[in-house]
């Protein structure tokens, strides 16, 4: 982990409120692993004050670039969206514990909304490792849906779900995924990231599926490096419950260890 000044190579709005930010920073590009995040200084002043965490959505070690995908939701992401090519961005990273691919083929990625970012990086790296990968990606409607195929090499099987049925299957992500299971999809392991209610539903259903499942969680952060204990989530391990830090032991946790 280092503090780096990254050069903005490209930024564009890829769907409504969704931005793709490409940064040039060889150290980050070469060391970041899927599931890890960067802690960004989004402004120079005291409003917004704290850094903002964003998952790494992809890297290109050869060109020394790293990609983030973020949704504009407040003052911090508004400032980020105003960056221009040639600007510098202060980053801490790579931070946190990455996903670990341990299970059998095929790997199924379950992404809701902005939660797709770390799973695109994971999908790409698993594909390169010769795995079969499915991505289930859900959003409210067509406008909110990212053109994810742009960020993945051909080979990942993408299943879209929209709540209004405008693109892909009609329904929420967990229903669409369940339908695929009924039709015979047999995942070796699951990786999920997205809004907490979605993760709760998936974790609950997984008590029946009993598949290895890792989730990437979010919590408000201050330091991002493990010093302040501010990003705690409740985890159960060996019959004990205790708080773990999303920025350090996380953001990736085994779903069965999270106290939902």
């Amino acid at each position: 982990m280092k503090q780096c000044q990254a050069l903005v190579q490209e930024i564009n709005e890829v769907s409504s409120y969704f931005y793709c930010l490409t940064l040039e920073e060889p150290y980050l590009a070469q060391t970041a692993q899927p599931g890890q995040f960067l802690h960004l200084r989004v402004g120079n002043g005291i409003a917004p004050l704290l850094r903002r965490p964003f998952s790494v959505a992809g890297t290109s070690p050869a060109t020394g670039t790293i990609r983030l995908l973020f949704r504009r939701v407040g003052a911090g992401t508004e400032l980020l969206s105003c960056l221009r090519k040639g600007d510098w961005l202060d980053c801490l990273g790579p931070l946190g514990t990455p996903f670990s691919a341990v299970g059998k083929d095929p790997a199924v990625l379950l992404a809701g909304g902005a939660g797709v970012a770390p799973l695109l990086f994971l999908g790409e790296s698993m594909l390169n490792a010769g795995k079969n990968v499915h991505l289930f990606y859900g959003a409210a409607d067509a406008k909110a849906l990212l053109p994810v195929d742009r960020f993945l090499s051909p080979g990942v099987l993408i299943h879209f779900a929209t709540e209004d049925g405008s693109v892909g299957e009609h329904g929420n992500l967990s229903d669409v995924f369940k339908l695929a299971l009924d039709k015979g999809l047999a995942p070796g392991e699951l990786f999920a990231c997205g809004p907490l209610p979605l993760l709760r539903v998936l974790a609950n259903e997984n008590r029946r599926w009993v598949l290895p499942m890792q989730v990437s969680l979010e919590e408000n952060m201050a330091c991002g490096v493990g010093a302040c204990q501010g990003c705690a989530v409740l985890i159960k391990k060996d019959g004990e419950t205790l708080y773990k830090r999303v920025c350090r032991e996380g953001p990736v946790f085994n779903s069965s260890e999270v106290v939902w």
Binding site: A47, N220, A222, L234
Partner: peptide
């Protein structure tokens, strides 16, 4: 000490609130 339940912090105008609970 295990500390307080989350969320433990939130940004406020030019500052932040924390309730770590001395973990």
């Amino acid at each position: 000490r295990s500390g307080n339940p989350p969320p433990r912090l939130v940004e406020t105008p030019a500052g932040m609130l924390n309730a770590i609970g001395l973990q």
